[in-house]
């Protein structure tokens, strides 16, 4: 293999190297790449929003399907612009209240699902040491999250067990992720040495 002659590969390779230069310190190459990434990605996101939202969810339903219900979110969306006019900014609270209310309303059913799934999963179907440890771990972790009692005496001891479980859990998750992260780096090195420089195939 030989060094790449594609302009796009060169651009991608130089941008890759400039991002890595951040590991040494903040420098003009990183600043350049950072601004390019932010600038291009925001342009890309705006295009996505224009295509998927304004055209697909407002223009088409309104003009082609004559779905006039779309006028309600259209007005809510436009109310957001009241922030640009002094003295009228309070109108933007209306769409904000709507989206926050939506988020809160939706979270309750999904939290129930989580709650039931976890409680049911903790019920030991088979009696093994592992299942008993899981039960002790779940109970002590849950007691760690008690806020209305002071963590001292017996509760203090139980929460200490809970913290131990939490730290072991975090350590395990940490260890399980390390190799995945290293493989990402290997992927970029393969691009630089293979696709760009042609040193490896």
């Amino acid at each position: 293999m030989a060094i790449s002659t594609s302009i796009w590969i060169w651009i991608a390779a130089l941008l890759t190297l400039s991002i890595y230069s951040f590991l040494y310190k903040d420098n003009p190459f990183y600043k350049f790449s950072e601004k390019i990434l932010v600038g291009i990605s925001i342009g890309y996101t705006v295009s996505i929003y224009f295509h998927n939202t304004i055209i697909a969810k407002v223009w088409n339903p309104l003009v082609h399907d004559h779905n006039f219900l779309v006028i309600v979110p259209l007005i809510l969306g436009l109310l957001m612009f009241s922030r640009l006019f002094k003295g009228k900014a309070y109108l933007s609270r209306i769409p904000i209240a709507f989206v926050v209310g939506t988020g809160c309303g939706m979270s309750i059913p999904s939290s129930f699902e989580n709650l039931f799934k976890q409680v049911q999963g903790t019920m030991p179907q088979v009696f093994t040491i592992g299942n008993i440890i899981i039960l002790i771990g779940v109970l002590s972790t849950l007691i760690y999250f008690f806020f209305s009692v002071e963590h001292k005496g017996i509760i203090g001891k139980v929460t200490r067990v809970g913290i131990t479980f939490i730290m072991i859990g975090f350590g395990a998750a940490f260890g399980a992720t390390i190799m995945a992260r290293i493989s990402l780096f290997i992927g970029r090195i393969q691009f630089l040495l293979g696709d760009w420089l042609g040193i490896i195939s």
């Binding site: 989580n114 709650l115 903790t122 440890i133 972790t141 999250f145 479980f165």
Partner: peptide, 17 residues
Amino acid sequence: SVPQMAAKRGIIIGIAL
């Protein structure tokens, strides 16, 4: 599957509440 799962379950129950 045991201590990690136990901690995760406890945390998720807390998060749900």
